[in-house]
Nucleic acid binder design. Structure first.
Lengths: 200, 200
DNA sequence: AAGTTAATTAAACGTTTGTTTAATTTCTGG
DNA sequence: CCAGAAATTAAACAAACGTTTAATTAACTT
């Protein structure tokens, strides 16, 4: 399954053959169907196993009553970035599945998961607006900007390196400074957009 | 080629067969190779034909000296959204190619194009910072947020409908109100993030 | 240690893939 | 109107695909 994430991430699902997988994982071709049933089942297993993690994190943050609304958002931003950076290949696979709608059922599942996350974050923002701590923004779009920024940055290693004038073959996702910069940007963005300046 | 954009967008490049293409376009299978040489050449032709458009628009805006920096950014936001909304399928194809790096040369080309656009926008933001009109932000990330937000929203029709409580089968990209809302959000975001409040 | 189950293998299965061939039809210029 | 080029076709091509089979090896169980 490690090999599967890796290959699906760079070649896509249909772009990866069972023979490639078997060779890279150093197992017999038939074993994949023996253990997973089919190539598609392997893919489903892979997604199900990993995709539920962020759900739990976000729900925990939302339920935490010791945090203010802006602190919750800050925490979610950090969680997302840390999570994405720790498994960049997997999230590339997720993004592809959102983009391509060939396997309908799986596509729907991924979307469903994503929508739930959105609703949680939207709820936090709306609460902040009701409490008059936040400006009257467009909550689902604010979340789209947070997650969209991260996705954009995670889309291509080469692009990141070019943008930041780094060497061609470096891995920006292993660079703690890069991570820090992204988090800082996101927080600054959300703060500027949401917080009402009270010191006038 | 119209059919190709459509099918590549929903099924991906490797997920679309020449036979599918031929059938939907109502032509003989052999004609695709006769006119384009190969499936991959067809894809290249498709990308090259459409991808250069945004380049020219952005360069024109950057060169326009009648506009202030923030007006330039506003204009670019509007251009991007209008362009993406007018050809949502094509931009899904572009995103896929950014995500998947199986066809190295093509992948590089798409990235190259994107990086140039980024550099132009970054130049505008940096100019605004030098002129003390903008806060000291992280320019490439600001652009990543703009383009990432749009991509996020363009990623899945179904997701958009869910987020905005619309019917399952509606097309949000044809809804002028949706477009307006996205533009407004982006401008508000960029303004809040960049502009220095001078009225104290 | 024998008997049963599970794991692993190489080979073959039928499809589907992108591409090419060779024959035929359509178009075009003199 | 008719040669020659261009466009279009159905059929065939080899290669690659996901999956299955049947045989062999390894691992348990009593």
């Amino acid at each position: 399954m490690e090999v599967a994430v890796e290959l699906f991430a760079t070649n896509g699902f249909e772009g990866t053959s069972i023979r490639q997988l078997a060779q890279r994982a150093d197992v017999n071709i038939a074993m994949i169907n023996y253990y997973f049933g089919s190539k598609e089942k392997l893919f489903e297993t892979l997604l199900e196993q990993k995709a539920s993690y962020m759900r739990n994190r976000i729900e925990a943050v939302e339920a935490d009553e010791s945090l203010t609304e802006i602190e919750k958002l800050d925490q979610i931003i950090e969680d997302y970035v840390v999570r994405f950076f720790s498994q960049p290949e997997f999230h590339r696979v997720l993004q592809q599945e959102l983009l391509v709608s060939q396997r309908e059922q799986l596509h729907q599942n991924v979307i469903g998961l994503f929508v739930k996350n959105t609703q949680n974050v939207v709820a936090i923002i709306e609460k902040g607006i009701r409490k008059k701590q936040f400006k009257k923004v467009d909550p689902p779009f604010v979340f789209a900007s947070i997650i969209g920024t991260i996705n954009q940055v995670m889309q291509s290693k080469i692009m990141c390196n070019m943008l930041l004038n780094k060497a061609f073959d470096e891995n920006p996702y292993q660079d703690p400074l890069f991570k820090k910069r992204l988090i800082q940007h996101l927080k600054q963005m959300v703060h500027a957009q949401l917080l009402i300046e009270k010191d006038i």
